[in-house]
């Protein structure tokens, strides 16, 4: 079973917050992370990993269906670098 937002809310709920407050708290946390990345600032969580925003330059691509050349505009992408600690735990 995949880990979803719901399960995290349940765990927060166990701390004694109401169900609604737990949902709000988790939403706030997600919003803080998204806002930081949106403003171009990386989010570094020691022991887990680092979320980075990288700028990709404009490049020439191709439409794979028609074979037409096209220009892909520059864009920002979010990347994740796993921490060494987590990587070791996963490989144990």
């Amino acid at each position: 079973m995949a880990l979803t937002k719901n399960k995290i809310v349940e765990r927060v709920n166990e701390l004694g917050f109401t169900k609604k407050k737990s949902v709000d708290i988790v939403e706030s946390l997600l919003e803080i992370i998204k806002n930081s990345l949106e403003s171009g600032e990386d989010v570094l969580v020691s022991g887990f990993g680092k979320f980075c925003v990288k700028k990709k330059a404009t490049r020439r691509g191709r439409n794979p269906a028609t074979g037409d050349d096209l220009i892909l505009d520059e864009r920002n992408v979010v990347t994740f670098k796993c921490s060494g600690k987590l990587r070791d735990s996963i490989n144990k």
Binding site: I8, R11, L29, K34, F48, L86
Partner: peptide, 27 residues
């Protein structure tokens, strides 16, 4: 502090168990 810990611990634990993670809107 507890909540931030719960959030990232839950994700780490899931990955250690080779479970998928799906957080809508984030990743």
């Amino acid at each position: 502090a507890k909540i931030v810990q719960i959030f990232f611990d839950s994700m780490s634990d899931a990955l250690i168990k080779a479970e998928r993670i799906e957080i809508r809107g984030l990743c």
